[in-house]
């Protein structure tokens, strides 16, 4: 079975670490893996998308519209922006956090209302969580990425231990405990 997972957010939110961790999980399971990252200009607070693919053999490092099994979104507006990448019957795991983009800050555009509710109304299966609060509860507000991975992990059907091992291998020792807690809080989260 192929896994097609997209991670979207705002540059600086930690999407890159999440994709690295996810790639590691799949590699530890003996699968072929491709992770496509964005570096450079787009990281300066811009909209960021990272693709993670795994399976027997993976060719393309990117995922096209209508192909993602899961979208892990770090921000509501980004959930809306990349929604078309979700396949029919796929799951959107979305943080409820809202970060105004510059056109909204300057008044040139308006942040859409009730974003997640309207996505749900389209018949999309959606798991919304206040990952920022959960990260704070875990002891590190920067562990939003691992909280969201924890939530998404439930929908991937992979053993929990392989996640914990990948966290141990990827996260610096100083932040390890908070990130382990963050993952567990996400994994046990009930929408």
């Amino acid at each position: 079975m192929n896994h097609n997972i997209i991670i979207v957010g705002v540059g600086g939110q930690g999407t890159l670490l999440a994709s690295k961790l996810l790639g590691r999980v799949f590699m530890d399971l003996g699968l072929d893996v491709k992770v496509s990252e964005v570096h450079g200009m787009s990281q300066r607070g811009g909209s960021v998308i990272t693709y993670v693919r795994a399976g027997e053999k993976v060719y393309s490092p990117i995922i096209a519209e209508g192909e993602a099994d899961i979208i892990i979104s770090f921000e509501q507006l980004e959930s809306a922006r990349w929604l078309s990448y979700l396949k029919k019957g796929g799951t959107l795991v979305s943080n409820t956090q809202q970060i105004d983009p510059m056109p909204v800050i300057t008044g040139a555009a308006v942040y859409p209302e009730r974003v997640l509710e309207r996505i749900a109304n389209l018949g999309v299966s959606i798991v919304a969580a206040d990952a920022l609060s959960l990260a704070a509860e875990a002891g590190n507000v920067k562990s939003v990425n691992v909280v969201l991975l924890g939530i998404a992990a439930k929908y991937m059907g992979l053993p929990e231990q392989v996640w914990q091992d990948a966290i141990t291998a990827t996260v610096p020792a100083k932040f390890l405990e908070a990130n382990r807690r963050a993952f567990t809080l996400g994994y046990n989260y009930e929408a």
Partner: peptide
């Protein structure tokens, strides 16, 4: 959807 261009930090 409003764009999200990169910004000065």
């Amino acid at each position: 959807i409003p764009g999200r261009p990169p910004v000065l930090c």
